[in-house]
Design a protein around this nucleic acid. Structure first.
Length: 125
DNA sequence: ACAGTGACAACAT
DNA sequence: TATGTTGCCACTG
């Protein structure tokens, strides 16, 4: 368990993305009050692979986070990107061959202010 | 303390 | 539309 910080807030948001919906790195950053911290959000999800042995970080639906263009980010992680596509398809999301997703159909509306407030104040699971 | 790193995003060609 | 460039920022050794 690490100290509460931005990463933990990111995980708290990602846990609440409903099955069958997606959002972007940038939108998560906006929700947390750091509108330009999109890269840090990606960095937080990347860090999950180093925490595989910690049950607290299991079941975080990281695959429901894609880029602002509605596409799975594949830079330097082609294999993982394909895995992400399969996970999304498994929950009913249409992913094209070039890893594109229709945001008009699958974009998550996001959290309400009260839920954001809870997360920002450390009141999250 | 500080420079390097990325699963981004906005802009400029 | 498709690349290339630049700004960003939390975290790390």
């Amino acid at each position: 368990m690490s100290q509460p910080g931005f990463f933990e807030q990111v995980y708290a948001v990602v846990r609440r993305i409903p099955k069958g919906k997606v959002t972007s790195y940038g939108r998560i950053a906006h929700m947390l009050g750091h509108p330009r911290a999109a890269r840090a959000v990606g960095y937080a999800l990347n860090a999950l692979k180093d925490r595989e042995n910690d049950p607290a970080y299991h079941h975080i639906p990281w695959h429901r986070v894609i880029n602002s263009q509605g596409r799975i980010s594949i830079v330097n992680r082609e294999h993982t990107a394909l895995e992400q596509a399969e996970l999304l398809r498994a929950e009913g999301i249409a992913v094209s061959e070039d890893l594109q997703i229709d945001l008009n159909q699958y974009l998550w509306e996001g959290l309400h202010w009260a839920e954001i407030d809870n997360i920002l104040n450390g009141r999250f699971s």
